[in-house]
């Protein structure tokens, strides 16, 4: 059984998978992991080749668009130690096409699909739970700390939605930001973040929302457990309606 190593980057991972699929007779008998440079590490290191990584993703998209989307979601989750599963998944996706997502009795497929689903779920959740605050200069800012690295697809969603607004998304943990202004979307990192001043009416609008949130619930049906299972507490930090609870 051959073991391969790669440099730990997303491009490195995909170029390694591409290389193995071409060179190995049976990719499902091969393992792939991140190189940690420890003393007893064994395996052949595959060098990173960005165009090759891109080409692999493109070919998969042509061949099995659903499977490529699963791969994309999986990468958002930034999950380590699953490289071998991903290799087997991609290999099977080329063989079976989009039907591969139904092959849940296969452990590698199940692992990849589950992680991808988790990222997809968080992306969908954040489309609802993200909260913008209006700043003094009229722009809007939303801070978040999602488990998965979803800022790209999330920003795309809001670029279709709040098109006439000038806004920022900021991923506090990863220090990455997205900016939408005059029809163009940009991404970048922020080394030092200082909270800008809020617009004058911001607190008033927030108070209105808090008031609405309180009265819309039916007291006779109070059900905090259901609320928490739909809206896990880890997301409450930036929710206007959950401040001061």
């Amino acid at each position: 059984m051959n073991s391969y190593l790669y440099d730990g980057t997303a491009d490195g991972l995909l170029s390694a998978i591409s290389w193995i699929l071409e060179e190995e007779a049976d990719p499902e008998k091969v393992t792939l992991s991140e190189r940690k440079d420890t003393l007893f590490e064994e395996g052949f290191t595959i060098s990173t080749d960005a165009p090759r990584a891109e080409s692999l993703f493109f070919r998969l998209k042509q061949h099995a668009p659903d499977a490529a989307h699963t791969l994309y979601s999986f990468m958002l989750a930034e999950k380590g130690e699953m490289e071998t599963s991903l290799l087997h998944y991609v290999s099977l996706a080329f063989r079976h096409g989009d039907q591969v997502k139904g092959y849940l009795t296969h452990p590698a497929i199940r692992d990849i699909v589950n992680v991808a689903k988790k990222a997809g779920r968080e992306l969908h959740r954040m489309k609802g739970l993200l909260r913008f605050e209006k700043l003094q200069d009229g722009a809007y800012l939303a801070k978040m700390e999602p488990d998965c690295n979803i800022i790209h697809p999330l920003a795309y969603h809001f670029s279709r939605r709040l098109r006439a607004q000038h806004w920022f998304l900021y991923d506090v943990k990863r220090r990455t930001a997205a900016r939408w202004n005059n029809g163009s979307l940009q991404f970048g990192t922020i080394e030092q973040f200082t909270t800008p001043a809020l617009s004058e009416d911001e607190k008033k609008v927030q108070a209105l929302w808090q008031a609405f949130f309180k009265t819309i619930s039916i007291p006779d049906r109070k059900n905090p457990r259901l609320q928490k299972s739909n809206m896990p507490m880890k997301y409450w930090k930036y929710l206007v309606e959950k401040q001061g609870e």
Partner: peptide, 20 residues
């Protein structure tokens, strides 16, 4: 393009009230 808002087929929940 000059306005606010679109709709998505699946619908989006924005919060959950105290009654769940």
């Amino acid at each position: 393009s000059s306005g606010t808002g679109n709709t998505s087929t699946s619908g989006i929940c924005h919060s959950w009230a105290d009654d769940g």
